[in-house]
Write a protein that binds this DNA or RNA. Structure first.
Length: 602
RNA sequence: GGGGGCGUAGCUCAAUUGGUUAGAGUACCGGACUGUCGAUCCGGUGGUUGCGGGUUCGAGUCCCGUCGCCCUCGCCA
């Protein structure tokens, strides 16, 4: 071992080490210089240790005077107990300090573009004056030194390990699938990779691989291949616009099982989740998770990924009541086939000023609604701009129907059903915290399954039915007969895992019957020839004895984000891209050498 | 592609109604200091107010354009 190499980490030294000569390696977190002594806090992945340089060691002391933040040091010295009253309870190593007798500067560091220095996690003070995210992304290797990111990536490591260990005990095999595949239509935009060896004979242009949006097709083929319990921690790529919880490349736990129905898949994932919560963050979750139908989620929460941390803020259909009132706006919407629904914010009436109530209308207009009516419910009356249209008996009926109590605030939107869901759903999440009807503190995890999704949604642009999940998702057996006659009513054997308002995963039971698969393509307006051209290999495979099968994929970046308590997916990824899909550190995407392009025929 | 927010010192921010030489904290440089620990105290360096144009006696501030970053709608089976 080289003399500069560490014998201990910076989070390790305790009173039991007093008197020992040790070597620490690490980065300078901060330094405090006096006439006759210099304190340096040395930081590594494991913690922070105070190093003291004393003036009686003249040469060493002079060298230590040059030390600046983020230098990489090796310090040898003797561990000693701190002076009485000088112990630092904020540090795990705060009872001791290292008195230096030898210093190796392993590397210097210019003043960094932003301050990395961080107070230890155990102080709970967090990172002071965190620099802007774009600067931190440009110097990601510096940002990664912060203990917060160390902690998140450690959590992510444990998540991966727990998944592998648990699924192994359940008999799953981890199998890799190709990154270079064939572009298939439907779904997200592909990232394409040109082939150097193959090109189109007519145009001379290269043929293309597509990077996987998910290993969907391969995992179904593995089922046909007899690998009845498969999983993979797989990178997926989609060339679509980004969000706070979406990256162009992301990681999924991809999983598939044969000879199963919905309950079998959900049971495996519930077992895995319990293990994850227990082993990654020391929490217990109660099983089984609640299941909500898509229809119910939309009706009560206006969303297929409701945040169930919000309580006392449900949407209630009041169409029947509204249609019978003398208020023209309501009557006309109901007569025209629309709906009227109210969001009841329990006990929130007094929190909203007149201005804030007036601002509800522009808020819902973002989602296509014409306006929002509000009612402050008081013991003996309604306070509302539409109060004059509602005689006392009518008010009484509404009060009873929505179970309104003194102090509740009702927000009413009359429109097409989708518009109401959008408007009131967003209203619910947007105002929950202000209305005091949610607990967003870390540790409150509300998970649920959303089931019974519709198989199809109408694509207005293309004037055809489109697969809501994907075209291989099996319809519920009892809905098969509606496939041709009433596609809108067909429910899929699909399920989403929703945690705290995020879609953490989703999957389905697949179609294993070629005849059903053909009918499915027909509904989607795809001719047998088209289907054959696009998915021929899968259709062939289904013919050659495909077992009934189904699976799920969990978004591990999102899961890490949720478990670590951040709302930014970039905080859960070591080297993320920004909102325009750029890597600010490497500068990707970038132009390439024309020679490379010529080789590819581009 | 649409909507919103932001852009001032290396970093985090301030700057009254459009009005004097654009300030502070931190980092950096120099000095002081016998135990600090997000050290403290004194002094100093540091600015094309993202960029371009316009209005005005006068623009960090108002207008137009443009670039960048964030949030969001569309999009993401």
């Amino acid at each position: 071992m080289a003399e500069w190499q560490r014998t201990h980490t910076c989070g390790e030294l305790r009173q039991t080490h007093i008197g020992q000569t040790v070597v620490l390696n690490g980065w300078v977190n901060s330094y405090r210089a006096y006439n006759d002594q210099i304190f340096v806090d040395l930081r590594d992945r494991y913690g922070l240790t105070q190093v003291v340089f004393e003036a009686d060691h003249a040469e060493l002391f002079a060298a230590a005077g040059d030390i600046r933040n983020e230098w990489v040091l090796s310090v040898r010295g003797k561990v000693r107990e701190r002076l009485p009253g000088k112990h630092n309870p904020k540090l795990a190593t705060g009872d001791v300090e290292l008195v230096a007798d030898q210093l190796h500067v392993l590397n210097r560091c210019p003043p960094p573009p932003f301050e990395v220095m961080s107070v230890p996690l155990e102080t709970g003070l967090g990172d002071p004056e965190l620099a802007g995210e774009d600067v931190r992304l440009q110097y990601r290797y510096l940002d990664l030194r912060r203990p917060t990111l160390h902690r998140t990536l450690n959590l992510r490591h444990r998540l991966n390990k727990v998944i592998r260990d648990y699924l192994d005990t359940q008999g799953f095999w981890e199998i890799e699938t190709p990154l270079l595949g064939r572009s298939t239509p439907e779904g997200a935009r592909d990232y394409l990779v040109p082939s150097r060896l193959w090109r189109d004979e007519k145009t001379g242009r290269p043929h293309w691989y597509a990077l996987p949006q998910s290993p969907q097709l391969y995992k179904q083929l593995l089922m046909v291949g007899g690998y009845d319990k498969y999983f993979q921690i797989a990178r997926c790529l989609r060339d679509e616009d980004l969000r706070a919880d979406r990256q162009p490349e992301f990681t999924q736990l991809d999983l598939e099982m044969s000879f199963v129905e919905i309950d079998d898949v959900l049971a495996v994932i519930e077992g895995l989740l319990a293990e994850i919560f227990h082993k990654c963050i020391g929490q217990t979750i109660s099983l089984p998770l609640p299941r909500l139908s898509y229809a119910e989620a939309m009706r009560k929460y206006g969303s297929d990924k409701p945040d169930l941390r919000i309580v006392g803020m449900e949407i209630i259909d009041i169409s029947e009541w509204a249609g019978s009132t003398e208020f023209r706006v309501f009557k006309e919407v109901v007569a025209g086939g629309g709906k009227v629904r109210a969001l009841n914010m329990k006990g929130a009436a007094q929190k909203f000023t007149r201005k804030q109530l007036d601002d509800l209308t522009p808020f819902v207009q973002q989602f296509g609604a014409k306006g929002a009516a509000w009612i402050k419910v008081e013991t003996d009356k309604f306070v509302s701009p539409i109060e004059k249209f509602l005689p006392a008996s009518t008010q009484q009926e509404l009060r009873k129907h929505v179970e309104a109590e003194n102090g509740d605030l009702l927000v009413i939107v009359a429109d097409k059903e989708e518009v109401i869901c959008q408007a009131l759903g967003h209203l619910r999440t947007h105002y929950a915290e202000y209305a005091g009807l949610c607990d967003y503190s870390w540790g409150n995890f509300q998970a649920a399954w959303i089931v019974d999704f519709p198989s199809f949604i109408w694509d207005e642009e293309e004037k055809r039915w489109a697969a809501n999940h994907h075209p291989f998702t099996a319809p519920r057996d009892e809905d098969l007969s509606l496939l041709e006659s009433n596609p809108a009513k067909v429910r899929a054997k699909a399920y989403d895992l929703v945690i705290n308002g995020y879609e953490a995963g989703g999957g389905s039971i697949r179609i294993h019957n070629p005849e059903v698969q053909s009918r499915m393509f027909a509904v989607l307006g795809m001719s047998p020839e088209q289907a054959r051209q696009r998915f021929g290999f899968l259709l062939d495979a289904l013919k050659y004895g495909a077992p009934p099968h189904g699976g799920i994929a969990l978004g591990l970046d999102r899961l890490t984000m949720i478990l670590s308590g951040t709302t930014n997916i970039r905080d859960a990824i070591a080297f993320p891209k920004n909102q325009k899909a750029r890597d600010l550190m490497t500068g990707a995407p970038a132009a390439v050498d024309p020679k490379q392009l010529r080789e590819l025929g581009l």
